[in-house]
Design a protein around this nucleic acid. Structure first.
Lengths: 156, 156
DNA sequence: GTTTTCAGTGGTCAAACTGCCCAGTGGATG
DNA sequence: CATCCACTGGGCAGTTTGACCACTGAAAAC
C-alpha cells in the first residue's frame, strides 16, 4: 500500500522522462530490469499509478480560460445535476463538497465571453439554485504530485 | 494550433490505451506510421500534449482526503505566499482567482485530523489573512479532458 | 535453528518496435 | 505550371520488450 524509496525514485524518474522504457529506467536506478518491471506492475495494480495518459493542455486546444464554480443544489437533485454536468465537455472535474456550496467544478472556456455561455449551460438546469464563479488569473502551482511522492516515499 | 479530427482520434486513443506504440496506433487509426509519428511530434511541440507522466493517485499514496481552500491574502504579499505554498507538498495546485478570495488551492491530507495540520501549515504564514476550506466528499467527475478534445476536434 | 518464502539479480531468447531513411502520390497554393 | 506539403508504403539496423531461467540473500514462519 505505501511506497518505498525505490518506488518513489521510479515515479519521479517516470514523471521527469516519461518516454524512457523499462530498460533505461533500470539503468538509471541501478537495479535489474526485472525489478523495475515488477515495481511498475505492482504500482499499477496497486492503483498508485493510474495510467500514463497524455496530459492535454486545454489552452492549446483553444480553451485558455479556466474558472471554478461553486454550485448550490436543490435538495435531492444531486444525482440529476451530476448527470447533467457530466454531459458538458467544458466541465473538467466535479466534486461534492462540505460547506454551503454543495458542489465545486472546474470549467474551461474559449474566452471570458464564452465563459458566460458555459456557465449558462451549466446553470441552466433545474436542480441548480445558485452558482458563484471565480475566474483563474494565474496558476503559480500547476497540478503536481512529485513533492508528495517524495514525501510519501521518505516516511517509510 | 487547432486540432483536426485525426489529432482528436489519436489523443483519445492514447488516453484509452497509453501503452500502445506508434506502430500499433497507426494500425488502429488506419494511417501510415510516419503520419502518427509526425502528428505526435507536432502535438507535443505545439504544447497540446504536455507529456505522458504517470498519473499518481494521492489516495493510494496514503492521502485520501482532498480539500479546496480559498485564501485571502494581505495586499502585496502574493509572491511570498506563492513561494510559501510551493514548499508544501500537500498543496497539489494553486490558482490566483478573481473575487473576494484571492487564491484557491487544492490540498490533500492523510485524514480529516491530518487536514488540520496541513491547513495550519498553509495558513501559518504572515501574508495569509483568512482561509476557508471545503472538504471534498465525492468526485463524480474526475479530472477529464477527452470530451473537450472530441469537441475541439469536431468544430474543425 | 531450520525451512520457506520472496524480492531481486543477471542472463538468455525470439519477436516486436523504434528512429531513420527513401521515392512516390495527391491536393492545395502561388 | 511549378512548388510545397502531408501522407503513403517500404526497408534497414539497432534497441527494447516480454518471457523465461537458475541463483542469491534476507526476512518470515515454523
Amino acid at each position: 500500500m505505501a511506497i518505498d524509496h525505490l518506488d518513489g525514485r521510479l515515479i519521479v524518474l517516470l514523471a521527469r522522462e516519461p518516454r524512457i522504457g523499462v530498460l533505461e529506467a533500470s539503468r538509471r536506478l541501478g537495479v535489474a530490469r526485472g525489478t523495475v518491471q515488477a515495481r511498475m506492475d505492482r504500482l499499477q495494480s496497486n492503483g498508485v499509478i493510474r495510467g500514463f495518459g497524455p496530459e492535454v493542455d486545454p489552452a492549446a486546444l483553444g480553451y485558455p480560460v479556466t474558472a471554478f464554480a461553486t454550485l448550490e443544489i436543490k435538495q435531492g437533485q444531486g444525482a440529476d445535476v451530476r448527470a447533467h454536468l457530466a454531459t458538458v465537455a467544458e466541465v473538467l472535474e466535479l466534486h461534492t463538497i462540505t460547506g454551503h456550496g454543495d458542489m465545486l467544478c472546474r470549467l474551461v472556456a474559449r474566452s471570458n465571453a464564452d465563459l458566460q455561455r458555459v456557465i449558462d449551460r451549466v446553470v441552466g438546469f433545474d436542480g441548480i439554485v445558485r452558482a458563484s464563479t471565480a475566474i483563474v488569473m494565474e496558476n503559480p502551482v500547476p497540478l503536481r504530485i512529485i513533492p508528495l511522492v517524495e514525501q510519501a516515499s521518505q516516511d517509510v
